[in-house]
Simulated scan of single mutants.
Amino acid sequence: MKTLGILGGMSWESTISYYKLLNEGVRDALGGLHSCRVVMHSVDFAPFADQMGKNDWKSVTAGLIEGAKSVEAGGADALIIATNTMHKVADEIQSAVNIPLLHMADAIAGGAKKTGSSKLGLLGTAFTMEQDFLSRPLKEKYGLDVIIPDSEKRSMVHCSIFDELCCGKILDKTRAGYVKIIEDMAAQGAEAIVLGCTEIGLLVKPDDVSVPLIDTVQAHVELALDYVL
């Protein structure tokens, strides 16, 4: 078994899900007392969130590169960034280390293949929805179309991520808002919805909606397990 490096803590609420699913996956594959070999660098998210709000991506990148180098030095054979938004600087992080970065776009594409979907609705932070660091590789590498909600709905999703989900607040009212947005995107032709923030899967479950969901935590874990096993 190879050793997986994780950049986590963004937020730790979803990093817990990564750790649990990785270990369950290895146990299911190998049986007995087997668990996933992991080296984790878990950040203090508050300074990163502040830097993102100030559009100071240079500082964000420097902090993540420090973490990536630390897991590489700790013996990791590959690296995952346990958050969608920070894939904005995935290329810079990959350039700074000598181990492969298992990219979220490849994980999402795997989920799209499983659901037989070619047109995806994307939810996440404003950075993830409005910039192309995920939608572009999905289009260019896999031929997948991506749609996003309108500006008012994007604002609701973005604020709920930072004000609620990253703080462990799971509210029925917010879930109802997400369900409405998801059903609207399905009506616009989305064949599956990408939960493109690793906390959204804590709020919205497959039984809540009529369209398939691609939970990026689950999809990313499956990609990582394929590598380490």
Rank of each mutant, 00 (worst) to 15 (best):
Y18S: 07
A126G: 11
N84P: 11
A62N: 10
S135C: 03
D106P: 11
A78Q: 07
T83F: 00
T128P: 10
M40F: 14
N23G: 03
I108L: 07
L101A: 01
S117Y: 01
Q131D: 14
L134D: 01
L138A: 11
K58T: 15
E72Y: 03
A90Y: 10
A82N: 04
L79F: 13
I99M: 08
A105L: 05
H87N: 08
K114A: 14
M52P: 01
M52T: 10
D50M: 08
E92T: 08
S135E: 07
L120T: 02
V26Y: 09
L64A: 06
K141Q: 14
A73F: 10
S118F: 00
M104P: 05
A109C: 06
K54Q: 15
H34E: 03
L33K: 02
S135I: 04
I65E: 05
G53E: 14
D50Y: 06
P47Q: 09
G32Q: 00
I81F: 00
F127D: 02
N55C: 13
D28E: 15
K139R: 15
E24W: 12
G116Q: 14
T85A: 12
M52K: 12
G124N: 07
L134W: 00
A90Q: 11
E72R: 05
G63P: 01
M104K: 08
L102V: 05
T125I: 04
G143H: 09
A90M: 05
L33P: 09
I81Q: 00
F45D: 04
G143A: 09
E140A: 14
G67V: 04
G53I: 07
N84L: 06
S35D: 00
G121S: 01
H34D: 03
G116I: 13
V89G: 04
D77M: 02
T61P: 01
L122F: 02
F48D: 02
R136C: 13
G116K: 12
S59P: 07
H87L: 07
G67D: 04
D145N: 13
L21A: 14
Q131L: 15
E66C: 13
G67T: 06
G63Y: 04
D50H: 13
A78Y: 06
K20V: 15
V43P: 05
F48A: 02
F48W: 09
A78L: 08
L120I: 11
N23P: 10
A62G: 09
D132G: 15
M129I: 05
L30H: 14
A126F: 04
D106Y: 00
I99C: 10
L123H: 06
W57N: 02
K141P: 06
S118A: 13
K69R: 15
